[in-house]
Design a binder for these strands. Structure first.
Lengths: 339, 339
DNA sequence: TTGTATGCGTTATCAT
DNA sequence: ATGATAACGCATACAA
């Protein structure tokens, strides 16, 4: 709108060189108190704000990091983002949150900002693109994976052990005497969906339960998909006695589907979720779920990213945080386990 | 990590001047096909990506707009943001989403990015700072208010008519025969909380109902506050027969509080929300609420902002979109109205 | 069709 | 303690 004052304007008004103006801003070199005063007054008078772009170009740094989430509607990520933002602020960085809607091209568009030097680092909360692309990118740019661990990869990451967590909650359902446990998995192209599926299968196997392919159906983490998939599960001949959804949001969709079907949770069908989002303890029945330290995941991710950007050594590149099983109403009577 | 190739490197390798390299990138001036080929090969070979910062400094534009939300956890805003992002992408802009946590200082930190020329425009989804500050800012920088209309202000904005919507849903409860309708309002320092409160009061007045101060309690749009405030409402002597919460999220908290209190919705107490977030139709009982065209609010906001940034005339600076009352289970038997 | 040179607003390295 | 000037990487007006 209004044409901005530059360092030259300030210098002219204060009758000094631009170098001196720059000096009073940085405070690095000594400046005569009297001229300093003049410069400050000039800055004040012109309402001067240094141009960030010029500074960035000069330093070849932006102090911006990009955080990519697959779906900004998903409440799971919002807390992770908060952790990221707080961690970033502490380290003097701004966060640009991008929602990719599971679209590789959108993700790549954001990642291009790094190539253009318009951002310094990247946090990926879901690795949906092909692994080769990610590996290549991580080799060239500071990047951290939050929430997801890619087996066999050396990319720095922060996550829980999704497999063991899924195993744990499936075992909980088994311990309650369930014999037909269905699983609403996440999109099969994301790593953590596979991890949770594996944990589920392992638990069944360890208990000598047969795998029924009909009982495993794929959702996309949305509440709508949870509802739709649960409907499908309710239409098969031998009804499941329990449903383990790979996310709380999908579990809430399932809750509604079961309700609409005239059945009751947990009496007729038990339900378990994953993530422990805020709403999990407010819906009725309250959700049994796996608590993920979402805020901490975000925070730790940035901390690692900052080290990466400073080219510091990060001792451990793959951080696994602890999860907790939270037993509430939706799975029936129970107890709490830690691990 | 890796030291980037510059336009000079490309020029040297292709044995041309940097001007020519620049030309093949922009495609503005004609370039000999043969040299163009050489340049392209050089770019390819060096894996060259133009430095965005330099471009930005040159053009004094960043193509970045900042969208500020008070709370990224609030699902209401996620859909607005999606609208903003899609609209922005169409217009060739990137969106930097910032969460202010209702903290003026955080908001100002983001707004400073505009002053530093590191972003071109601002969308505020909640005006929590003092009005003078906002007015001043809007006079100097391209800015649009989404979701909120400030009476007496000329700042461009896109929103529904919060007052009439609140009046409408309160009247719905009155029509169902409710005599003691409580209101869980939003934070009193945000404009739309006041608007919704006013609508609520107007409806009561029009029906000749007395105002009971005990029945109006302030929340902060969080599910926890909805729960806590509802608890408070359940502890007063003459119980309310209905609760109108200023947001669905708070309404869901209230649902749980009523449930925990051993009462039933809508039989014992009716509940109405506001926003029509995704989850509103999935909780039990499903929420009666006001549907806001959230995605469109976001989209229209950016469109206005883009015009503002281009210094184009925006015909109408204050856009009011239509809301819809959605009657579901939580308010008891009913019908649907439009307006 | 191509090259030279200037400027975008800073910071930093020289001098003085 | 201060000033002149060269980068940072690119786009473009002007020459050739």
């Amino acid at each position: 709108m209004i044409t901005m004052a530059t360092i030259h304007d300030v210098a002219r008004l204060a009758k000094v060189s631009i170098a001196t103006v720059s000096r009073v801003m940085s405070g690095a070199d000594p400046v005569n108190p009297k001229t300093q005063q003049r410069v400050m007054e000039a800055m004040e008078q012109l309402n001067y704000t240094p141009n960030g772009l010029a500074r960035n170009l000069r330093s070849l740094k932006t102090n911006v990091i990009i955080a990519l989430v697959p779906d900004i509607k998903n409440p799971f990520f919002s807390e992770v983002i908060r952790g990221i933002e707080d961690g970033a602020r502490e380290a003097g960085f701004h966060v640009l949150v991008g929602s990719t809607d599971g679209d590789r091209e959108k993700a790549k568009a954001y990642m291009a900002l790094l190539e253009e030097s318009r951002a310094d680092g990247l946090i990926l909360t879901t690795a949906q693109m092909d692994q080769a692309f990610i590996e290549d990118f991580a080799a060239r740019r500071p990047m951290v994976l939050a929430c997801e661990y890619i087996a066999g990869s050396e990319i720095p990451c922060v996550s829980i052990d999704n497999e063991s967590a899924a195993r744990k909650i499936t075992k909980h359902l088994l311990a309650l005497g369930h014999t037909r446990i269905a699983h609403i998995m996440g999109p099969s192209n994301v790593v953590l969906s596979q991890a949770r599926l594996n944990g589920y299968k392992q638990a069944l196997r360890e208990h000598g339960m047969p795998e029924d392919e009909l009982l495993v159906q794929e959702g996309d983490f949305s509440i709508e998909s949870g509802y739709a998939v649960a409907k499908k599960l309710l239409s098969i001949e031998r009804l499941p006695t329990a449903i383990f959804a790979a996310s709380d949001v999908m579990a809430i969709g399932a809750l509604r589907a079961i309700h609409d079907h005239g059945l009751r949770v947990p009496d007729d069908i038990a339900v378990a979720g994953f993530d422990d989002i805020n709403m999990a303890s407010y819906v009725s029945p309250a959700l049994t779920t796996i608590h993920q330290p979402r805020y901490e995941i975000g925070q730790r991710s940035v901390q690692m990213l900052v080290k990466l950007m400073k080219a510091e050594e990060l001792g451990q590149a793959q951080v696994v945080l602890e999860d907790t099983m939270i037993i509430r109403e939706s799975s029936g009577k129970g107890h709490e386990e830690k691990g």
